[in-house]
Structure formats: structure tokens, C-alpha cells
Nucleic acid binder design. Sequence first.
DNA 1: TGACATAATTAGGAAAAACTAATATTATTA
DNA 2: TAATAATATTAGTTTTTCCTAATTATGTCA
Lengths: 157, 157
Amino acid sequence: MKKIKISDISKEYKNTDLSSNMEDYIEAIAMLSERNRIVRVKDIAGKLNIKMPSVTAALSKLKEVNLIEYEKYGFIELTGEGKRIAERICQRHFCLKDFFQIILLLSSEEAEDVACKLEHDISPEACRQIHKFLDFYNTEENLNRDWTKRLKNILSQ
Amino acid sequence: MKKIKISDISKEYKNTDLSSNMEDYIEAIAMLSERNRIVRVKDIAGKLNIKMPSVTAALSKLKEVNLIEYEKYGFIELTGEGKRIAERICQRHFCLKDFFQIILLLSSEEAEDVACKLEHDISPEACRQIHKFLDFYNTEENLNRDWTKRLKNILSQ
DNA sequence: TGACATAATTAGGAAAAACTAATATTATTA
DNA sequence: TAATAATATTAGTTTTTCCTAATTATGTCA
């Protein structure tokens, strides 16, 4: 079970000024570059379930606004600003995923799916409240409160 | 404070197979026809913050798929199927709004905004869990449980 | 190293949604 | 009822995002 620290409350869950789509590309690049040493057009296409030409087009736009560095047929890397934005998107993603998985007891996959969809539209304020809730819940749960058991019971039905 | 009945759990929060946009049009028409006896293109445009020609185009599509009845320069009305779909969208909307307002203590306006955005992307399963949670919370709250006070305290900070 | 496979790009197009400007219809009221 | 105001529609664009087919570049291995 993921533990969320009080200090994490400092997260602001700021908006990015990007379209949902562009956020998806940034997020995919960030996640892929954590796993693999290089990120390929094909990988991004695979992750987002689209064809390569769509990726190429998106990369041009992201390069245009200085969120990635790349040359034709070359490497794909987030710039500093790209990384900062990826961080924001991922924070919202994980906040939502934790909430749906830990509190609402959706399966990991279902929670992942929901997070992927909602992360683009949830407001920073709403995300901060969810974060506080998670924080509260984890503390209470550690104390083995009765209400969390009753809640789990109801949510499992 | 809105009270949610156990029986409401029967809500399925099914998907609609419409784009977010089309869902917005259907929802707007449903809400407007509750208040006014007739629904005008101008009203829909006002509610959705877009211009009239965009509405006209959307109405053609909705008519095409038999979700509304209307003739040029005439009345706009949801068909039976249109109403059933509007009902689904509104159920998700109010479920989300209640959650963000009652549990997470967002202002009514902020909760409304968030609900409007998320209602198109949240999965039925996730919505059902939120519903159960609301139900649980209302019961617990009625018993004036200590944990709801602690939670409110934290969320108000 | 040359042939073949893999990966990436370009070119061209389609669908969804929105817009402005121009036109047409309906409603109001003097 | 004729003139004006309010509404609605059409025509024509734009932007975003995706696609297929064709081409180009890169990488591999016999």
C-alpha cells in the first residue's frame, strides 16, 4: 500500500496550459524514459495506441514549444520545462490513481484507466482535496479505525 | 445538504457512446427544458458558452441520431432515447458534484465545474463506488461520527 | 558491404468542433 | 401591417488530431 507523506501536501497540482492530447504525449515520454534509456516514436505510438505519423506530428509541436528536444530520426528527450510539466501531470495521475485504488477499491487497472482519463480535467483545488483525504485516510487506517473497515465493507459489495 | 437514498444505488451510471461534446449538448437541453417551457438555440449557446452556429450544427447531428426532435426555426425537444441518455449524464454529474461538494468541501461552483468536466470520462464502476461512498458518509454523518469531524477539519485547512 | 527489415517521416485527407460574416426567418411593436 | 429587432441558419474557414499510403532513413546480418 502506497504511503503518502504529509509533506507531499506541498504539491500544487497546477494546470499545464496544454491540451489533453499534448499532456498524454508528455506523460508517455516521461514514463517511457524512466524505463528505457531511449524513447522511440514506435514506443510512444504503442503506449498511446495510435499510429506513428500521429506521434511525429505531435513531436513537432512539442519541439516547437520547447518541451522536448529531438532531431529527425533522432533521440526524444524532455527539456527541463518538459520535465517540470511531466511532473505535474504525473502528480495528478498518481493522486487520482491512489484515490480510486486505495479508497474506492477499484482494481489497479481500473484505477489506472480512470486516472488517465480524469487527470487532464481535474482542477488543482479538487486534486489537493483528494490528496488531503488520502493523507487523512492513511493516518486513520494506520490506527486501525473502525470506520475504514465499515467503509471497505460497503465498497466491496 | 442533499440526501442520497440507498435505493439510488441501483443507478448504473452507464456510458452513452456519445462524444463529450454531444453529451454537453444533451445535458444542456435537458437542464434548460426543466426550467423553461421552450429551449432556444440561443439559450444552449449561452449555457455552453459558444456561438449559435455551433449549436445549429450540433442539433443536426443529434437529430440525425434521433436524440432530439426539431425542425428549422422550431422547437428543440429530447426524444425518449434522448431523455434516457440525459438522465444518465445527469446522474453522473450530480454524483460527482455531491462528492466534491459534500465530502471534499469544494464550493458549490467549484464542485459544479469539476463535475461538468469529469462527468464525461469517469467510468460507471468508479461512479458507483463514489455513490456508495456518499451513501456511507451520509449515514455516518447522521450518527455524528467523530471521524467526519476530523476529516472536515483537515479538508478545511 | 549489400540486401532486407525495422523505424520514421512526408503527403494528403477526414472528422469533430469551433468561429465569423452573410443571409434568412420569426417576433415585436409603432 | 410594415419596419425593426431578435433568432437562427448557411457558407466557408480554422484548428486539432487522427488516419493510410508512399517514401526515406537507419540498423542488422549473412
